[in-house]
Simulated assay, not measured.
Amino acid sequence: MSLMEQHSRDCNLEIQCVPEHKSENLSSIVHQLASVVSFDLHDNDIVNFHRVAKRNTESKRPRSIIVKLSTPRKRDNFLAAVKVFNKNNPQSKLNSSHLGIASGKEQIYIMEHLSPDNKRLHAAARLAIKEKKYEYVWIRSGRIFVRRNDTSPAVLIKNFDSLKQL
């Protein structure tokens, strides 16, 4: 079931920490983010977009934006553009000031939209790599990988047992 649930999200991006406003236009926010990271995004590339409900209603963090793009390749190219932008701008990674939002300089995160199970596994993997002195954790096509250092091989994290074996 989890595999199917993740597969249904294979064209989706999750955009986190974009400040919310009552009169916001999600379409223009997505297009502006694409413009900032120099990604060519057209209206017909976007299938759907919406904000999702918060898991923790007490959280001050804004609700995430889910964007369904036309193809997984479009999603991957958008993610690659974000990565290049953040690498080329280490002092000013993608943040709310790039959108002209005056409420501070909140960093914006764009990632693959994970199923709830994979989201929990990814969170556990991020904690495990700190404990076990690994340097990298990343997501590719809905799968979670870790790597101890630049020269070690990538390890696929399939489930919580995979983390125990690190």
Rank of each mutant, 00 (worst) to 15 (best):
L114Y: 02
H122K: 12
G142F: 01
V137C: 05
V155G: 00
N56A: 08
C11H: 14
L3I: 11
Y136P: 00
K60E: 09
K87W: 07
V37C: 02
L127C: 08
L166W: 04
K60T: 10
E131A: 06
Q6M: 13
I110F: 03
D43R: 14
F145E: 02
I15L: 11
P153T: 00
A123V: 10
S92M: 10
L156S: 07
T71H: 10
I29P: 04
Q32N: 13
I29V: 13
E14I: 15
N25V: 11
W138T: 02
C11Q: 15
V52E: 15
H42V: 10
H21Q: 13
D45E: 12
Y109W: 11
T151W: 04
E112S: 06
I129N: 05
V146E: 00
I129M: 08
E20V: 09
R120S: 09
R147G: 01
N86I: 03
N77V: 03
I110Q: 08
K119G: 12
R51K: 12
S103L: 14
L94K: 09
H98S: 06
I139C: 09
R147H: 01
V82G: 04
Y136S: 02
E5D: 13
R143M: 08
I110N: 06
L26H: 12
L156C: 06
N118P: 00
R61A: 10
V36W: 03
K130H: 10
S8H: 11
L94E: 03
D10N: 15
K68A: 10
Q32W: 06
A124S: 09
G100K: 14
D40I: 10
S97Y: 10
I110S: 04
K164Q: 00
Q32L: 14
Y136D: 02
E24G: 06
L163F: 00
L33E: 05
G142C: 06
S97C: 07
L13R: 13
A80W: 08
N88W: 08
S152R: 03
P19S: 12
K105T: 13
L99Y: 03
S35V: 01
K158A: 02
F85N: 11
I129C: 04
N86M: 05
A123H: 10
K68Y: 04
L156I: 02
R61M: 10
I157G: 03
Q107N: 14
R147W: 01
H21T: 12
N12A: 09
K22R: 13
V30R: 08
L166I: 11
L13C: 09
V137Q: 02
E131M: 06
I65Q: 04
I29T: 13
K83W: 04
N25F: 07
N77D: 12
N56W: 08
R148D: 00
A102N: 15
K83R: 15
N88A: 08
S96C: 01
W138F: 07
A123N: 12
Y109D: 06
I29K: 11
N149L: 00
P72G: 04
Y109H: 12
V155W: 01
L79G: 02
G100E: 09
V37I: 11
E135L: 04
A123G: 05
A80V: 03
V146G: 00
K164F: 00
S2H: 13
I46F: 11
M4F: 09
I144Q: 04
G100A: 09
V84C: 09
D10Y: 12
H122Y: 14
S23L: 14
F85T: 07
S152D: 01
D76K: 10
